[in-house]
Design a protein around this nucleic acid. Structure first.
Lengths: 331, 331
DNA sequence: CTGTTAGCGCATTCAC
DNA sequence: GTGAATGCGCTAACAG
């Protein structure tokens, strides 16, 4: 492996001069600088970031730890994050924790061990332990899900009120028995969306015992099973509010299998607006989260935090938007 | 920051002993080991991987550089890779090059600088320069797309023959004027899929001047535009073979906008079998790639390569599977 | 079985 | 404006 000393020897200067040239620090005679550049090119020298990081006690890598790589919300967010971060000279690496607290812990361990410049995290549960990062002074921004301890910067979506609007929309369009399929109760988003659903029913004067909710796993299979169980229940719903994209897939699939037509027999609104929501028939009414903006905002908070370590933690709330399509409009 | 020396002092042993205990090397008196563990816990010590990596001249991080994070093929592959790699003690970080050669170069630079243990890459173009990695002795596995220089391990899918089967399938089902929408010509997969399409037409005795192909960008908008251009052409097709998932989205969307019904007015087969292909109406006939297996195989090749640096490069070909659904069957 | 020593590659003092 | 010396935190020789 070629080191800075090899370059120094080839250019007939000292290692310090090579370092100065490459990092544009101090001033170097242009003749020497030219010799250094020539040597670097000739030897194909690549600085060893590991040694550099060790010396500098810092890196320029940001880890994005997400809970589901198949979820469009996260991938779109990754774009927003990367666009901001890379402009500021950081690289972003993505880690898929897969809704699994152990994997999440492992990746947090990597982030600490490798002394990443920062971590952006969609916590698997509200109890995710960030003390390790804090101890090492690694800035964190939590996204999408609320943490029990509100000691870190966060970017959240107004998911409760959006869920309420979505449910109210179904009620306004003549559906009378609206069900809700939400995510695992350990995920704050799942609870928020469920709460918004209940808000809407309450406000519409629906008796509490007529709410019809199911918890599932935020995955396709869970959505399918939950829909099936609703259809087979004593009083099947005539509309359903689904709390994420993957489960919506399962719900649509289940309804098709059972010959239940949307929206005639079953109104449908889903949280998340994946690309395919527009092309299924009928197109799905969806709550679109500002995922790209979540990523950008998270990046900004993180970069701010690097500069102002001691500032009070901030939480930014972003709005979601209801996009009305045919699946929620009675023919 | 607490270092190994802080722990050593607290446990009243030497740094080497701490190192030995933590890395389970050599043998250490159990009394001392207990003291070390206590000190580690008390001080919340986390080894600095950077220093460790510098000393060891190696890391245990594998980079997966993909060309489109929104493509289900890649995310599913990431799972396969991670399942194998993490079992072998490696962490996987994902880098999204976004079909962009510059970003790809940047991430390769990170991988070299950080001395990652290996790189798995879906090359943006066949000319992607891997000499930097080679010079640093970092193992590489190319996936999905063929490189001009066949000097690295590769995992590829038999995409040409699969494309031929898909096209032949349309012809067998009574479609007579089958078009093809493929990806950018710089991507080898796009050329392969186009070649397979042509193979099928040739074998079926269709005159070469009756082939009807469009290059697009592998994205939704490109698929939409290409379909539009086909419909507006002098002799619109009665079926279309689409070369990836994102473009299929655009194609379906375009056909809906134009009131062209699938499969009555237009047969459709798509490469890639995203989850939504089953729930659109009609469900789409699709060429399913063994994406998860591609990931696992790539991981295995990479791990093998770590052990046998000098072995000849291997290329593993995997089969794709045609999944027939309603979109290609004339009513 | 344990401690001392040295060096991984680099950026930064400090002399010159 | 330049070079020699030092240390970031860790592990592998080596010596005891």
């Amino acid at each position: 492996m070629t080191t800075i000393y090899d370059v120094a020897k080839a250019a007939d200067v000292s290692a310090s001069t090579v370092s100065r040239v490459l990092n544009k620090r101090g001033t170097v005679d242009s003749t020497l600088a030219a010799r250094v550049h020539a040597a670097v090119a000739a030897l194909q020298y690549r600085p060893n970031s590991i040694a550099r990081n060790l010396r500098l006690q810092s890196t320029s890598v940001i880890a994005l730890i997400i809970s589901d790589i198949e979820n469009h919300f996260f991938t779109s967010m990754a774009r927003g994050l990367e666009d901001v971060a890379s402009r500021a000279g950081y690289s972003v690496v993505l880690c898929n924790a897969d809704e699994n607290s152990k994997k999440e812990r492992d990746y947090l361990g990597v982030a600490i061990g490798e002394r990443f410049a920062g971590v952006i995290l969609s916590p698997a549960t509200a109890n995710t332990d960030l003390s390790g990062l804090r101890d090492q002074g690694i800035p964190v921004v939590a996204i999408d899900r609320e943490l029990r301890e509100h000691t870190v910067d966060s970017v959240l979506v107004q998911t409760r009120s959006a869920a309420e609007r979505a449910t109210a929309h179904l009620l306004e369009h003549g559906f009378v028995r609206v069900a809700c399929i939400t995510g695992p109760s350990k995920a704050s988003t799942a609870e928020q969306r469920l709460a918004g659903y209940r808000d809407a029913l309450r406000r519409a004067g629906v008796r509490a015992d007529r709410t019809l909710a199911r918890h599932a796993d935020y995955k396709e299979g869970g959505g399918y099973a939950a829909m099936k169980s609703l259809l087979d229940g004593p009083q099947p719903p005539d509309a359903v509010f689904v709390a994420n994209e993957q489960m919506a897939l399962g719900v649509v699939s289940c309804l098709a299998d059972r010959g239940v037509r949307i929206p005639r027999d079953m109104g449908l609104v889903t949280f998340d607006d994946p690309p395919w929501a527009r092309i299924v028939s009928p197109p799905l009414t969806a709550v679109a989260q500002p995922s790209y903006d979540v990523g950008r905002t998270a990046a900004r908070l993180l970069l701010d935090r690097v500069l102002h370590r001691e500032a009070a933690p901030r939480t930014v709330w972003l709005e979601a938007e209801l996009r009305v399509r045919a699946s929620s409009i009675r023919p």
